[in-house]
Amino acid sequence: MSRPQDPQRPLFPFGNPFRRMFPKGSNLSPKLVDLLNTFEVTLAERLKKLKPADSEHVLSLSWMRYAMESLCAIHTDIKTLITALELPVCDWDDKWIDVYLDNSVKLLDICIAFSSEISRLNQSHLFLQCALHNLEGSSKQLTRARLSLDGWRQHISSKNPRLENCFAIMDNLAETIDLPKIKNSPKGKVLMRAMYGVKVVTLFISSIFAAAFSGSMKKLMDLHVPETLSWADDFTDLQALVNNEIRNIFSSGRITALKELEGVDTSVKKLYPIVQDGHVETEVLQYSTSDLRLGTERFSQGLDLLAKEVDSFFQIVLTGRDALLCNLRVGGNVTNSVQPNDSIGGQSVR
């Protein structure tokens, strides 16, 4: 995790992790090269599409939803690769399994923290709905509206303790991002290199969400990847654009990086002195109320759509983990259970 005094601190001070993963003289078959190339080309394309045409779109709920949607697709891509590799679980090194299972637990915990924060933000909608209802009534109801706006402010400024746990998990993932050394397994080398890419992008997007939800750019990470990777330039460009924009947002003094939440807060600030004053101009009140209503609807709808994507990601990680554990128990082939798209649209975990 980057620190305020050193925002560009490298996360990989020990050099290129692939020097151990792909030592000189290790040859991959044309089929394995093709599989790895297909995965990495697809990863690069997904990173290109994630780059916003306008930096102003960074940390809008619609962009965050697309970022999570892209992450779901990338994790589905790794399932597709595992299937194509035809690598039975019995051939998996214990270290690979340990890394996969440990990382999957951490990702599930991160998803739970993000879902918790989205739910907390969504609860603020009740305060706004109550305020909007009373803004159309008598002077007595305007007092109630002001109290609802006060409640909204207090709710939004409160902290979510689950996010703190999420930050510690992300730090641990960053420290262990260098995957284990692979010996005498060309398929294992392909799998671990692909998983490295998935882990980097997952950590990058998670750090963006953490910064947005926490209201602090100290949660941003600056990840450095080997230049030899075909997707390195696309990742570096995307990371630089997004992280710089987020830092600019917080440097400007805004209370939140979320665009839609900032819009609602601006409407509340304009409306509050109007309802606080005993003399209310009807036209001014109606205009401000309409502005708040539109912002509230946009914010609530954006949160609902984002929540669905976070849940989809949770399901993808969970089913991939369950499939591996199932195959470990029965001694079967991982490709029999880990199929792409098997968890999208699935039922929520009980």
Rank of each mutant, 00 (worst) to 15 (best):
L324C: 06
L292Q: 07
K31R: 12
V317W: 05
L147G: 01
I249F: 01
L328I: 14
F14L: 01
S115E: 14
P23C: 01
N37F: 14
V275A: 04
Q5N: 11
R162K: 11
A211W: 09
R254E: 07
L142E: 00
I255L: 13
G346N: 15
S29G: 10
G263Q: 13
D171L: 08
Q286M: 15
D77W: 06
E136P: 04
R120E: 01
G332Y: 08
S104M: 03
H224R: 14
S2T: 10
S343G: 14
Y287N: 12
S119L: 06
D150F: 10
A113K: 06
K189C: 04
Q276E: 14
H125D: 12
Y66H: 14
Q315D: 06
F22G: 01
E309D: 09
K269C: 03
I205G: 06
H133G: 06
T256A: 08
E136A: 14
L173G: 01
H57G: 09
G15D: 03
I246H: 09
E260N: 03
F235R: 04
A44W: 03
Q154R: 15
V99D: 02
I177T: 04
M1F: 13
S157A: 15
P340D: 10
V284H: 15
A67V: 03
D342K: 10
L101P: 00
V201I: 04
V317H: 11
R19C: 00
K187H: 07
L258Q: 02
L32G: 02
K270E: 05
A232N: 10
W152S: 05
F209D: 00
T282N: 09
C166I: 00
P7T: 02
K140L: 06
K51I: 02
A168P: 02
W63L: 02
V284I: 15
A307L: 09
A53T: 10
F204E: 09
I156K: 14
T42W: 04
F209V: 01
L87Q: 13
K79D: 08
K270D: 06
D94E: 13
N341Q: 12
G15L: 00
A240S: 13
Q315K: 15
D150A: 12
L85C: 03
S251R: 12
K183N: 07
K219V: 10
D91V: 08
G331Y: 15
F213V: 00
N327H: 11
S252Y: 03
L294R: 11
Q301T: 07
D277P: 01
D322R: 13
S348G: 09
K259L: 11
Q239T: 01
D150W: 10
A53P: 00
P88F: 00
D304C: 12
L71M: 06
Q315M: 11
D291V: 06
N184K: 13
W92I: 02
V242C: 13
Q141P: 01
